[in-house]
Amino acid sequence: MNLKLVIDNTSNPGFAKNEEIKKLKTCRTHCFYFDGQSGKCGIFDEINLDDPKTVHRCQRFSDWREEDTEEVYELIEDGFSVEFEDEDFLFELSGDKYSHENSTYPLKPDFPSNREDSIWYISPDNSFACWVINKSKKRFVTVNSNKSVEIGWSKRIYNSPYPLHDHEASSSLKSRMAWYVDEQGWGQYVLLVNGEITMISEPRPQNWKNGL
């Protein structure tokens, strides 16, 4: 009779850690926009394809379903927690053509939103502009500054039908930015490409509920 030594690798802490890493969604493993042939994102330039924080801002995974299109706040998974406050979420579009000389921003958008539910908003001082997509049916009180609004899961997420701070996007992206207000009234900046929300600034954690 021959005896075989069987080693249970699942009890090894290193093995468990590697398995946990494999389960994390990244642009390279799950993103709808990832191009396997070139090894690059098909939409954005110079992004970290293996950073989970990047993919959780993206709106299209390989397991994307049609009904997920507007669920821009519920894509973050249970147990995944990350601070987005000091992270940039805007990336330059691959092959984007933009003319500084012919730009009409902020008075008029340089690119159409390709959405019927959006309007072009210009800040009172004409310093910035963006599209506004409001899905909320709640009544908003008049707001004059970010000190008078209810803050959400980030200081850049708040209850307001229009933005109170500049998105600070690059020139080629300024006319693709939108202030998206969900059904509960929480607003944040998103990036529009061909009428679709392709990137959001700070996903709402599933365990977040009015700051609890």
Rank of each mutant, 00 (worst) to 15 (best):
K138A: 09
C58H: 02
S154G: 01
E116A: 12
H167L: 00
T10Y: 13
D50Q: 05
D86Q: 13
C130Y: 01
T104I: 02
V132R: 02
V149L: 08
A129L: 00
L107V: 09
H100I: 11
Y158E: 05
I133G: 02
P13R: 15
S145P: 03
E116H: 05
L3E: 12
E74M: 14
S103I: 02
V141F: 10
E183K: 12
V149E: 08
Q59L: 14
W120D: 13
L173C: 00
G79I: 15
N159K: 15
V181Y: 04
L192C: 03
V6F: 08
K137R: 14
R204F: 02
Y158W: 03
L173V: 00
I200L: 14
F111N: 08
L212S: 11
Y180P: 03
F140Q: 09
E92H: 08
L164I: 07
M199G: 06
P106R: 06
N194L: 12
Q37N: 13
M199W: 06
Y162A: 07
E77Q: 14
V149R: 08
F140Y: 15
L49F: 01
G211L: 04
D110P: 01
S118N: 06
R60P: 00
Y105T: 01
E46N: 12
I133M: 09
V149C: 10
T10R: 13
L173N: 02
D8W: 04
T29I: 10
R115A: 05
F89R: 00
F80W: 13
L164P: 00
F61E: 06
S170D: 08
Q37K: 11
V82D: 07
G152R: 03
R115D: 04
G14E: 13
V82K: 07
K17H: 09
K40N: 12
K25T: 05
E71W: 04
C31G: 02
I47D: 03
I21T: 10
N18R: 14
V143R: 11
G195S: 06
T69Y: 08
V143Y: 03
H30M: 11
G185I: 00
I43L: 09
D117C: 06
E202S: 07
G211M: 05
E87K: 07
E66C: 05
F91L: 06
V193E: 13
V72C: 12
I119S: 11
A16L: 15
V82T: 11
R57W: 07
R60K: 12
H30K: 10
G211E: 05
K138G: 01
G39C: 02
K174H: 00
P124N: 15
K155E: 11
E196G: 09
N134D: 14
Q188D: 07
M199F: 09
A16I: 15
V181F: 00
N207V: 14
D78W: 13
S154K: 02
D51N: 10
